[in-house]
Lab assay of single mutants.
Amino acid sequence: GLPPGWRKIHDAAGTYYWHVPSGSTQWQRPTW
């Protein structure tokens, strides 16, 4: 699974990851 606080988001551009507490997003899968 993903580290705490991360969500996987799907949209028209593809899949990305959202860090809910900080509001940051990234294309790379977050690592622990």
Rank of each mutant, 00 (worst) to 15 (best):
H10T: 15
K8A: 14
P3T: 01
K8R: 12
G14V: 07
H10S: 14
I9M: 12
Q28W: 12
W18H: 10
P4Y: 06
D11L: 08
K8G: 05
P30A: 00
T31E: 13
H19S: 03
P30I: 00
G5M: 02
W32D: 09
V20Q: 12
H19I: 01
L2E: 13
I9S: 03
W18Q: 13
P4E: 08
Y17Q: 02
H10I: 14
H10E: 15
Q28P: 05
Y17H: 03
H10P: 05
K8M: 15
W18P: 02
W27Q: 13
W6K: 00
Y17I: 00
P4D: 09
P3W: 05
Y16I: 08
R7F: 13
G1S: 13
S22G: 03
P3Y: 00
K8F: 11
G23S: 04
T31H: 09
T15A: 10
S22E: 02
V20W: 12
D11W: 07
S24E: 13
H19L: 06
D11K: 08
S24V: 15
P21Y: 07
W6Y: 00
D11A: 12
R7L: 15
H10V: 15
Y17K: 04
W6N: 01
P4R: 05
Q28Y: 10
G23Q: 05
I9T: 04
P4K: 05
W6G: 02
L2T: 01
Q28T: 12
G1Y: 09
G23T: 01
G1V: 11
D11F: 07
Y17E: 00
R7S: 09
A12Q: 10
T31K: 10
G5F: 02
K8Q: 14
L2I: 03
D11Y: 08
W18V: 15
V20L: 08
R7G: 03
Q28G: 09
G5Q: 01
T15W: 10
H19A: 03
Q26R: 05
Y17M: 01
W32M: 11
S24I: 15
A13T: 15
A13W: 14
Y16Q: 04
G23W: 02
S22Q: 01
W27I: 15
V20I: 11
W6P: 01
L2S: 05
I9E: 05
K8W: 09
A12N: 11
P3G: 04
P30W: 01
K8S: 08
P30V: 00
W18L: 15
S22H: 04
P4N: 06
G14E: 04
G5L: 01
P21M: 06
T15M: 07
K8D: 06
T15E: 11
G23N: 12
S24K: 15
A13V: 12
H10F: 09
G1N: 13
D11M: 09
G5P: 07
H10D: 14
Q26N: 06
T25G: 09
P3M: 02
H19N: 00
T15F: 09
H19V: 01
Y17W: 06
I9D: 04
G5D: 07
P3S: 03
P4Q: 05
W27N: 10
T31G: 10
Q26Y: 04
W27K: 14
H19G: 00
L2A: 03
Q28V: 08
K8I: 15
Y17N: 00
R7E: 13
A12V: 11
Y17R: 00
Y16R: 08
T31N: 10
S22P: 03
W27Y: 13
P21K: 08
W27G: 07
W6T: 03
W32G: 09
G14Y: 06
A13L: 14
A12F: 08
P21T: 07
T25D: 05
S22A: 04
S22N: 02
G5N: 05
G14Q: 06
G1P: 13
S24F: 14
A13F: 15
G5R: 00
Q28K: 08
P3V: 07
W27D: 09
T31I: 11
G23P: 00
W27H: 11
G23H: 02
W18M: 15
T15N: 08
Y16P: 02
W6H: 01
V20Y: 11
T15I: 13
W32H: 11
P30M: 00
W32N: 10
R29T: 10
R7V: 15
G5Y: 03
V20K: 07
W27T: 14
A12L: 09
